[in-house]
Design a binder for these strands. Structure first.
Lengths: 181, 181
DNA sequence: GTTGCCATGTAAGGTGTTACATGATTTA
DNA sequence: TAAATCATGTAACACCTTACATGGCAAC
């Protein structure tokens, strides 16, 4: 349950309501959760039960009141413990590869079309990510080092997309070689 | 539900029982599902209901009888339709990046240790993948082109791990620059 | 007057995991 | 005698998603 720590992290940056957290998640690329209410609100309740956050009600004129959450010292400790812990091994799970695994039933044109459509999607993602980086890092920049970390996090996805494109190019080459042979 | 098509694909290669499919999944890297029974058996029942597979009972001496599944023509059609369909966009979801997002609370040594432990894990994965490729492609090789596809699928994960390692190296460099500055 | 924002939440479902239940047989 | 293999399946739980319920206020 990594979103729990994503929320603790955001609250360690600045106090926020469930609604504000949801908005942040929905706009964030680095913290890639959708920000749906069914995940955020129950998680906040759980964190409160565990004594990792505390909340106070913010009354705001015409708008409905909101519960603004804050990290407790225990919350800060829990976050720190998670951050130093052994990171999980990343797993590559690209459904496209499963599709490709059974693609020998396609003829050369159909296969080329499939690869073309996939390439366009990845290229789009790659360009969008580059644009996000151009606009500057999205997260907290309380220190120069933290700003660097968030910049590199954004850069990470970019590099993965580019590796994907290079692999595709290689696949095209190999298929071409086979065809002319 | 991509595992559904992974199963259809395997059955298009050769008939198999639920048990054999599970064994294949648990050993396969390309078809990355764990192969747990709770996923395989109900999926087979569903495919049977949908008329995409048919089954016959194989009696085998001392061992318990097994249901051997086979693709129907409708199953072959469904598989083909899925294979030509627009591939989903790959999403990069590395929990380590979330951890790194809040890692500015660590001092330089703690951060270096975290990166080191992550690097070792990725390096291990990368080496294991290289070894798998050296042993030859795991999937069907009914045609030279199909063999090429499966080789490139194995190569894909390798390249992703290597991109990850290059990114890590870059992150280390940037952190070093900042430190000496 | 319909759409959209503010703000809380619930319902239902898809997808995946580990662990268990059952029961015979083979291997160490 | 303890374990692993063969073979089916269920239970419980983790995580994530879209869609809905409620209700006032703002903007076009």
């Amino acid at each position: 349950m990594a979103i729990k720590y994503a929320i603790l992290g955001l609250l360690s940056w600045r106090p926020a309501s469930g609604y504000e957290l949801r908005k942040y998640f929905s706009e964030s690329v680095a913290l890639y959760w959708s920000g749906n209410s069914n995940q955020v609100y129950p998680t906040l309740v759980q964190l409160h039960k565990d004594g990792l956050v505390e909340s106070e009600v913010r009354q705001q004129g015409n708008y409905p009141p909101s519960k603004v959450y804050n990290l407790t010292p225990a919350g800060e400790t829990a976050l720190r413990e998670w951050v130093v812990a052994d990171p999980p091994v990343p797993q590559v799970r690209n459904p496209f590869l499963t599709q490709l695994a059974w693609a020998d039933r396609l003829n050369d044109e159909e296969l080329a079309s499939l690869l073309g459509r996939y390439e366009r999607e990845v290229q789009m993602k790659s360009l969008m990510q580059r644009e996000l980086i151009r606009r500057g890092p999205e997260g907290p920049a309380r220190t120069p080092r933290e700003q660097l970390l968030w910049t590199m996090i954004a850069d990470h996805d970019c590099r993965i997309y580019e590796a994907e494109l290079r692999w595709l190019e290689r696949l095209r080459e190999e298929l071409g070689k086979r065809r002319t042979a």
